[in-house]
């Protein structure tokens, strides 16, 4: 940031940006911890809702407007509600779930956390993604940035991509969703011949 020209207004905008970011980050991370430590499974489902909202906010903050709304619709409107149905259908009266009682589980979780954290920090530091940017950017940067600046949003660009470069994965995912929904309905149905399954 060229400091002299912008002056205090630019700094203020920057810090406002930062405050929003940290608020969204806290909104994402704190409920996530709540999921791991909570004992009431219904509370967990609502903690998950907080995390999903936080991630949607982070998407919006990164100018991925369409993705943020998709996150809200699919994750919160679909998956979280499905989870609540799962909770209602599979739990008897006490809605409390126990944590891992066995020591190996705790030890392995701590070990995994430490190893992955060290690996991630190491790889963030060691890879050269922040210098690669300049080499890649000019030719390959596409219309998305311009669209965001113009206020058009990212939906048009995403749609063009999905129906041109990514048409094959797009169709495969469509078929996958169809197969999955038929399969889910088949697995979860009651056996009409009166068995317990």
């Amino acid at each position: 940031m060229s400091a002299a020209g912008r002056g205090r207004e630019g700094e203020w905008a920057l810090s406002f940006h930062a405050i929003i970011f940290w608020a969204l980050a806290a909104m994402t991370i704190v409920p996530a911890i709540g999921i791991v430590v909570s004992k009431n499974i219904v509370h967990m489902a609502f903690w998950l809702l907080g995390t999903l909202l936080g991630v949607a906010g982070l998407y919006l903050h990164m100018e991925a407007d369409f993705l943020g709304m998709t996150q809200v619709f699919v994750y919160i409107g679909g998956i979280n509600v499905l989870l609540l149905f799962g909770i209602m259908l599979t739990n008897r009266e006490p809605l409390y779930v126990r944590a891992a009682v066995k020591r190996p589980a705790i030890a392995s979780a701590v070990l995994l956390g430490v190893v992955v954290a060290v690996g991630l920090i190491q790889s963030f530091g060691a890879t050269e993604w922040h210098t690669v940017k300049d080499a890649v950017a000019p030719g390959l940067a596409d219309a998305s940035a311009k669209a965001v600046v113009n206020g058009d949003g990212t939906a048009a660009t995403l749609g063009t991509y999905l129906l041109s470069d990514y048409i094959l994965p797009f169709e495969i995912v469509s078929i996958l969703l169809l197969v999955v929904l038929v399969g889910a309905a088949y697995i979860a149905r009651r056996d009409p011949e009166g068995g317990s399954a």
Binding site: A32, I35, V36, M44, V97, R98, S108
Partner: peptide
Amino acid sequence: SLLFLIGASGFLLRRNLLVMFM
């Protein structure tokens, strides 16, 4: 990364299938 690590440790720590799913 924090989100991923919290999820991974939750998957190992909790035993209820729904919580592992979350």
